[in-house]
Simulated assay, not measured.
Amino acid sequence: MYLVTFRLDPGEYDAEFHELNDSIQAVAEETDGYRGKRTWNDPASDEVLVVYYWETLDALDAFGADADHKRAKQRWTEWYDAYEVTITDVIETYGSGFGDSADPPK
């Protein structure tokens, strides 16, 4: 499994951002190998972390090839003050579990 952590400092969102964001999320959900996402917000700094769960790098690559996703990446300065993407290969997970909120999301 792979985790893609999208860390962002939000700027101003317009209608086009929301349309593109919804389209990109729909593409992710339709991609074989997409397992879900979790989002955290830091109210003190407004920083946002979104963690996406992928079964394989091939699935992630297929998602990254989407035209809307590529367009959004080119236009990030219009909507974010800063961003960072980290891709992590999960070697192991363990713990007591979180029931219905266990990772990866269902």
Rank of each mutant, 00 (worst) to 15 (best):
L3V: 04
L3E: 12
V4P: 01
T5S: 13
R7G: 08
D9L: 13
D14P: 13
E16T: 15
F17C: 00
H18W: 15
H18E: 07
E19W: 06
L20F: 09
L20K: 15
D22F: 06
S23R: 15
I24K: 04
Q25C: 08
Q25L: 15
A26T: 13
A26M: 09
V27Q: 14
V27H: 15
E29T: 09
T31I: 12
T31D: 12
D32Y: 06
D32S: 13
D32M: 06
G33R: 03
G33N: 07
Y34Q: 02
Y34C: 01
G36H: 12
R38P: 01
R38V: 15
T39R: 10
W40F: 11
N41Q: 03
N41A: 09
P43S: 07
S45K: 04
S45C: 01
D46W: 09
E47S: 06
V48W: 10
V50Y: 05
V51A: 02
V51I: 10
Y53I: 01
L57P: 00
A59G: 14
D61Y: 03
A62C: 04
F63D: 00
F63V: 00
G64P: 02
G64N: 07
G64K: 05
A65T: 00
D66M: 02
D66T: 01
D66P: 00
D68M: 04
H69Y: 01
H69F: 04
K73Y: 01
Q74W: 02
T77K: 10
T77C: 04
E78H: 13
W79N: 02
Y80M: 11
Y80V: 05
E84Y: 08
E84G: 02
V85N: 03
T86R: 04
T86V: 07
I87V: 07
T88I: 10
T88H: 11
D89P: 06
T93M: 13
T93V: 11
T93Y: 07
Y94H: 08
S96N: 11
S96I: 12
G97T: 14
F98L: 13
G99N: 10
D100F: 05
D100S: 08
D103N: 11
P105C: 02
P105Y: 06
